[in-house]
Design a protein around this nucleic acid. Structure first.
Lengths: 309, 309
DNA sequence: TCCCCTTATACTCAACATGAGTATAAATTG
DNA sequence: CAATTTATACTCATGTTGAGTATAAGGGGA
């Protein structure tokens, strides 16, 4: 009954029971286009691309990379494992899902029929606060019903969704989604159950794919603060405004422009190319590029976000 | 050849090839005793506890929890997935290892023959800088040989090991270990190869277990800064000095006492119990306990470390 | 041509957080 | 009861952050 052997002998000397296990890889592939954080989906946005683990690759990551690069015709800049789930099936056959986050640039995923890029805010509208907090506040009445006369629930709601002057932590994407699930406000939680309250807006996904997407968003929002991964989502040359808007798209929040520039400059993450934008409205902007040397110079811990309140 | 199916049909409609895959769980169980961060090992410290995945548990984590609690007779306060590796075996049978980090309190692991708690600094002596940086600086000559006349290597060494006035980032445990591996300075990298340079101090482990341990240390050092997980390693009541020393044990660095207290107090992570220590040398210290309400109040992002320079 | 709109870039300032150090209190130990 | 040890409280200079203002440099249209 135990997942770990009772004695080291069992564990280390080939005494393992070899259960049949299916292993599936699930990819959350992210790009930012026109200030929109997008994710590659299949089945009209109802599922994340996934497939069985096959032999022939050195590692899980190298297999994922090869697949993504063939599908998008674009190198996969950054890949990171998200989480491994084990589902106990009814028929006793276990299946294991290993999910990955990948950063790329949007490109026609031509070889992948039915694949489309969709804004991740279609699935989590309340996570986009760049144009205001209306989408998040629309959830409060429903949550208030769920939390009625339960002090602990009230605390959780206001801690996560921020009502009454409390802050908004953009990293708590998964916790918010799980609370909405617990409250029965997302369709995935309604399987066979009675419908009690009006559902919250946002597109549904199959199985636990929406949950995996929430995990990916949370991870990425945390990561951009201490690793220079944003640059994987940008072209080689970019303006500081483009960089800022990409960050804003990911964080779902507006940033304070002068402070953002100060932060970027003092961290020496980028260098001038000597070139400028042209043809657009307004004063031409300097074009910058990422300074890859920082990857080796520092072990990192920087890149914070100057939010606008 | 691809790990993800070429078409959604393959992936989603049962077209999976069902390769025989072995799944193994590996646990990095951490406790802090007498100011020493310890990890539960088997085989005289040569391996981490591990075993095959078995059926009968809802999830991977619940299986791990049950096993740990039976072995240590102590509830597993906190568990977190670390990483999933896939090894391609020579005989074409794939095996998958899912590693976990668990926080506990040291207890006689009576039912587990051969299990002992060992300080993690036995495996990574250079990561302990509480009594000085001698252990880390002892590595520099060997690394200098490896980096000779290679500017990029020099940058990496000084970025990770901090020579010449550059700072030390305690979170880069894995990167430092991997660099030592690359330089051929750890025994695990010597399988069948020629011995060129004297090895670095530190105990060896089987397979990639030392690497998994490095991953766990890095993760925990990062985590304690923004989630109140330290308290899982402490008794219910503790003094601020005990809390500080536990943090120091994990971070491998000394902290500035007045500033540490200021930080803890202003974050309102703990509350007074009204009790005091007694029988020890010096003025009696107030006993505090963790204030679990914070888990629900906030979404967190706090708990930084005031390092001593 | 000149004014206006737009975007880029530079600078200021108060509030707060942090790093470092000093001073005082209350116990045990010899 | 003095010396030692640990706890706890406070100060101060510096750095970082949030917020706002001012100026520069392009294009478009009256």
């Amino acid at each position: 009954m135990s997942p770990l052997a009772a004695t080291p002998t069992d564990a280390r000397q080939g005494g393992m029971r070899n259960e049949p296990v299916q292993v599936e890889l699930i990819a959350v592939l992210v790009a930012v286009t026109d200030g929109d954080p997008r994710v590659l989906t299949i089945e009209s946005g109802f599922a994340l691309p996934s497939g069985p683990l096959e032999s022939g690759h050195r590692s899980l990551q190298s297999g994922l990379r090869a697949w993504v690069e063939r599908q998008t015709h674009h190198p996969l800049g950054y890949a990171e494992q998200l989480y491994t789930f084990a589902d106990q099936q009814r028929d006793a056959a276990r299946s294991i899902s290993i999910s990955y986050l990948g950063l790329s640039r949007e490109a026609a995923a031509a070889e992948y029929p039915g694949a489309i890029w969709r804004s991740w805010y279609e699935y989590f509208p309340w996570e986009d606060r760049r144009q205001g907090v209306a989408a998040a506040e629309a959830l409060l009445p429903g949550l208030a019903v769920w939390a009625r006369e339960d002090a602990a629930r009230h605390l959780r709601v206001s801690g996560l969704f921020g009502g009454a002057g409390r802050g908004w932590n953009e990293e708590l994407v998964l916790q918010r989604y799980e609370l909405l699930w617990e409250a029965g406000l997302v369709p995935e939680a309604r399987r066979g159950g009675a419908v009690e309250m009006p559902l919250v807006p946002g597109a549904e996904m199959t199985h636990d794919h929406r949950r995996i997407l929430a995990t990916a968003i949370a991870r990425l929002r945390a990561k951009i603060k201490y690793r220079p991964v944003v640059f994987e989502l940008l072209p080689r040359d970019f303006t500081l405004l483009e960089l800022q808007q990409t960050m804003e798209a990911l964080a779902g929040q507006s940033l304070h422009k002068p402070n953002f520039r100060r932060l970027i400059e003092q961290q020496e993450l980028v260098e001038e190319t000597g070139k400028f934008t042209s043809g657009l409205a307004g004063r031409p902007a300097k074009l910058f590029r990422f300074r890859p040397a920082v990857l080796e110079e520092r072990g990192f811990t920087g890149t914070k976000l100057p939010l606008v309140r």
